[in-house]
Design a protein around this nucleic acid. Structure first.
Length: 750
RNA sequence: GGACGGUUAGCUCAGCGGUAGAGCGCUUCGUUUACAUCGAAGAUGUCGUAGGUUCAAAUCCUACACCGUCCACCA
């Protein structure tokens, strides 16, 4: 038996009367899971979670950020769910037709990485299986994870409409993605071309800036003789791809060389190379002169575009040198570098080297050094989308407000979006090329290329035959996630769901995906529907460890929200999380600090149970309950309807305090300041109602009964969005009308 | 380099113009009939530093320091 359980047991044995209590029986206090399961099942069976597009109630839609299929829940997720659920329950009781829509993200790269590791353990691999077999295995793996997915994710009392759950690869979403792709193409917003991208040689795919992290490395900085100039580089092996030398236009030292051509020594013999001036060159770095290698450096690539320089590929997609490297061809770039240093020295090209510490971009998942490489990728032109979005950012209520500026600033400096990924798990690019007429898979003319989900049935317009092959790449996960507000409601097909619930009323997000996801949903929503996708956009803070670091698997500093839930109960854990929910504010937590907060609210729950015991079980037999006493009809809490003189001063005071609480809680919920709402409620219930009013009411117990019941029941109703289980449990024990606290109406002071 | 946020009791955090707050922890007391998973009482803070605005500043403004996040760059 658990130690804390034994301790609790001892405490509970005193006083002995407790045995007669119906509420405080052992199994009911200590087996919270049972109580929670009972009520969750009851709510689901009664259909309280279901949205009803046919109802005449106004819509209130909340879109749950879809968790990653292969992710495991952490405190941030638990907080998101707790916040969403509180708002959903509040709005439902207020009389809205609430849609709290759940979904799951296929999580392209993350899923593929997890599966490939698994395959490695099984002694096979992506390459060995081939695309078709691999995908079969992937769907099988997806189903395996999905089985336990609900147990992992749905336990926080989330009142979501599970019947409408969406998976980001299901046909509904595929149709939306096709529509998105097709209309971008038709509107000339989509292009394919060879551009420099960040390439992970291990994952064999282009990745986005946000998928990289930086590692400090000790390297050498090499000084090389280039004609009359000396340039500094960390990457001598890319020398074969140089097409110019560059200096800053304001650099007086090199003024005389700009525009002139010089012969320089290379390992493949002499070459002619021009000196150009470009403002991107930092005169303070190295010697102030740089070699321009447009094929393998993003900055150089941009310079080359400005000066119309040739682009030479030196490193291929597996990180090996190409044939331009002569005898070094086929070597990995690190090997090649080591091998060529002696020769560079010998030929007098390498003048000196010095130690150099810099940060190197690596792939976030596999930690392989990322290589800038020229690759054929698909891009979306973003400027036209941002222009529209920027004009209408005012229509979104950002919480906190400064996120409007943060997102707007980002949109102002947006660059085109690389949407293709060389993966297999995801929405495959719905483009078919005629292998015969268009073997290089070029785009631009529609005749030997067709946009379609399925293999086209018609003939190629050029050759009149059907040699269709599909584009090998898949779309960036965010290409589909960006459509989430629409795709989940069946767009582009018209439906009563889409009519009623789009745009959404409430969306929330972690700040870290504000550009990847939130900004794109806004831009795509406006582009395709001319409506902002959500009225209220809530950014919560990040919960970190006590040192301020992010929770991560590698640090092992994560806190499993389900362990908290098992120890303290769902209601208490939710309340602890709300104390961290101040919009946009980060928080620090450890298992210990979480336990402290949970304990606080577990005690609060015990307080509620004991209040219930006093009011319900120890009710004097002659007292009349609130429902029978005519209390509701008299509405004594409205001074105009019943004179103050008819109320006992204590009663008047508690009713006034209750009214203030109703106003505060409602106001703070409307403004999504959940932490303030619970603070107010806690103070009222514990220190105003329990400590003061109940104590004094002991002297006039019979007379006070209707007010005790009324105040407590109203308190439970106010508390229900935050602590759904215990409030239902106790509300059911009070005299009440209606099936559930979920189906009552929100307390009002009018 | 650019933008933003934080700095309040031992710890974790609220408050964001009107007499310093909560939870946990700490001290003392308490077996009164809702509650010891409790109650009563208490200790603990020049609200990062320096200026300014104001009758009044933790709260607004400016500068600085430290911590953190995001964006850009790292040849």
């Amino acid at each position: 038996m658990r130690k804390d359980f034994v301790l609790s047991l001892q405490n509970t044995l005193y006083p002995p009367q407790i045995y007669s209590s119906e509420i405080l029986t052992m199994d009911k206090i200590y087996d919270q899971t049972k109580i929670e399961q009972k009520w969750y099942k009851f709510w689901e069976e009664e259909g309280f979670f279901k949205a009803d597009p046919d109802s005449s109630k106004p819509a209130y839609g909340l879109l749950i950020p879809p968790p990653n299929l292969t992710g495991s829940p952490h405190l941030g997720h638990a907080m998101q769910h707790a916040i969403l659920d509180a708002v959903a329950r509040f709005k439902r009781i207020q009389g809205f037709d609430v849609l709290l829509l759940p979904g799951v993200d296929h999580a392209g790269i993350q899923f593929e990485g997890t599966l490939n590791k698994l395959l490695e353990k099984e002694g096979t691999s992506r390459q060995k299986l081939g695309r078709e077999e691999w995908l079969k295995r992937a769907w099988q793996f997806k189903e395996e994870i999905y089985k336990t997915f609900h147990d992992t994710w749905t336990v926080f009392g989330l009142s979501a409409d599970w019947s409408r759950e969406v998976f980001t690869l299901e046909p509904k979403v595929q149709r939306a993605v096709l529509e998105e792709f097709k209309s971008f193409w038709e509107q000339n917003l989509l292009y394919k071309g060879a551009y420099i991208v960040q390439w992970c040689p291990k994952d064999q795919t282009a990745i986005e800036d946000v998928e990289m992290e930086y590692e400090e490395r000790k390297d050498k900085l090499y000084y090389l003789q280039y004609g009359p100039l000396i340039i500094a580089t960390t990457r001598p092996e890319t020398k074969f791809g140089d097409t110019a030398m560059a200096v800053n236009p304001n650099d007086k030292r090199y003024e005389q060389f700009v525009g002139k051509e010089f012969e320089i020594k290379t390992l493949n013999g002499p070459r002619k190379m021009k000196v150009i001036a470009d403002k991107a060159i930092d005169p303070k770095f190295g010697t102030g002169a740089e070699k321009v290698t447009p094929g393998h450096d993003i900055l150089d690539y941009e310079i080359s575009k400005r000066h119309n320089l040739e682009i030479i590929h030196v490193i291929d997609k597996s990180g090996r040198l190409t044939k331009v490297a002569g005898k070094y061809a086929g070597m990995k770039f690190q090997e090649a570098r080591a091998a060529m240093i002696p020769e560079l020295k010998e030929k007098g090209i390498l003048i000196k080297e010095e130690d150099y510490v810099h940060s190197v971009p690596v792939c976030e998942r596999c930690k392989t050094t990322v290589e800038p490489i020229i690759s054929e990728e698909w891009f979306v032109k973003m400027k036209p989308l941002t222009q529209k979005a920027l004009k209408r950012m005012n229509e979104i209520n950002f919480v906190p407000k400064n996120y409007k500026k943060i997102l707007s600033d980002w949109m102002k400096e947006i660059h085109d979006w690389t949407i293709s990924r060389s993966l297999w798990w995801g929405h495959r690019i719905p483009v078919w090329y005629c292998q015969k007429c268009n073997p290089n898979h070029l785009v631009g003319k529609d005749k030997d290329m067709i946009i379609s989900l399925e293999k086209p049935g018609k003939n190629c317009q050029t050759c009149g035959q059907k040699h269709w092959v599909q584009d090998e790449q898949v779309l960036d996960t965010w290409f589909s996630s960006g459509l989430w507000p629409m795709a989940t409601l069946g767009w582009p097909q018209q439906s009563k769901e889409f009519e009623k619930y789009y745009p959404w009323q409430f969306e929330l997000s972690a700040p870290e995906i504000k550009y990847l996801w939130i900004a794109r949903m806004i831009m795509l929503g406006l582009h395709f529907t001319n409506k902002i996708p959500f009225e209220n956009m809530f950014f919560h803070g990040m919960i970190r460890d006590l040192q301020g670091r992010k929770f991560s698997k590698s640090l092992g500093n994560g806190i499993d929200p389900n362990k908290l839930r098992n120890q303290w109960g769902t209601d208490s854990t939710r309340m602890a999380l709300y104390t961290y929910s101040a919009p946009g504010r980060d928080g620090r937590a450890s298992r210990q600090t979480m336990d402290e907060r949970c304990k606080n609210f577990r005690n609060f729950g015990t307080k509620l149970r004991n209040i219930a015991r006093f009011i319900i079980e120890l009710k004097p037999s002659e007292a009349s309950p609130e429902l029978d006493s005519g209390f509701i009809q008299k509405k004594p809490w409205i001074p105009d309807q019943v004179g103050d003189d008819k109320l006992h001063p204590d009663d008047k005071k508690i009713l006034d305090q209750l009214n203030k609480t109703i106003q505060e809680v409602t106001k703070n919920l409307e403004g999504f300041n959940l932490h303030l709402a619970i603070e107010k409620l806690y103070e009222f219930i514990w220190h105003q109602f329990a400590d003061k009013y109940i104590e004094s009411a002991k002297n006039r117990r019979t007379e006070a009964q209707p007010i005790l019941e009324y105040v407590f029941k109203t308190s439970l109703e106010l508390l229900h969005p935050f602590m759904p289980f215990i409030t239902e449990e106790l509300w059911q024990k009070l005299p009440h009308r209606g099936k559930s606290i979920m189906a009552t109406s929100w307390p009002s002071t009018k």
